[in-house]
């Protein structure tokens, strides 16, 4: 089945590149691998019959946000990450930090597992239903976004506006303007 081969290829690529983002010492390569990972995710969206989501993924993440990331990394001028010194006095080795860290990690794994299980359940419920493929149409997507998910949509935009105002306030220089 060529479809499942493609699926495993895209997801394999997404997972391997995402793992390499963390395992990479050169931040420049990390950024590029993250872009590759986003590209693989876009491929998965195309397979899910959601070309609009795929293209939006490329435009917003790979095309805009990662360009900014690259800009910052290039300015950092840090081709090599500093090696952490792993001795007893390292802050991450303190008993309290380690315990909380383990707790958070377990919580994350539980959450991920439950989300995945729910996704399988939802997938079986919606299997064979005719209205599942509506996400492929931009018109329907927009309609759903501005009716059923109106509150979430507006709340998100206010959140982004607040972040934007915050960034402007932080970046503003006091004193006479240039």
């Amino acid at each position: 089945m060529p479809e499942s081969i493609l699926f495993y290829a895209w997801s394999g690529l997404a997972i391997v590149t995402a793992a390499l983002v963390v395992g990479q010492r050169n931040p420049m390569y990390s950024v590029l691998l993250l872009i590759a990972s986003f590209g693989a995710l876009a491929g998965l969206y195309v397979q899910l019959d959601a070309p609009f989501v795929a293209v939006a993924q490329i435009i917003i993440y790979a095309g805009a946000i990662m360009v900014l990331f690259l800009f910052v990394v290039m300015l950092l001028n840090a081709p090599q990450e500093d090696h952490a010194v792993w001795d007893r006095t390292h802050p991450l080795r303190q008993p309290g930090v380690a315990r909380w860290g383990i707790l958070l990690a377990v919580l994350l794994v539980v959450q991920l597992a439950s989300a995945l299980l729910r996704a399988v359940e939802l997938g079986q419920q919606t299997k064979g239903r005719g209205d599942v493929d509506v996400i492929s149409s931009v018109r329907t997507l927009g309609h759903v976004l501005f009716t059923d998910y109106m509150f979430a949509f507006e709340a998100t935009s206010i959140l982004i506006l607040v972040a934007m105002v915050g960034a402007v306030v932080l970046a503003r220089r006091e004193g006479p303007s240039l």
Binding site: I35, V55, I58, I59, A62, G63, A64, V67
Partner: peptide
């Protein structure tokens, strides 16, 4: 989307 990738 593709033209925005060209900048890389």
């Amino acid at each position: 989307a593709i033209t925005s990738m060209g900048v890389y």
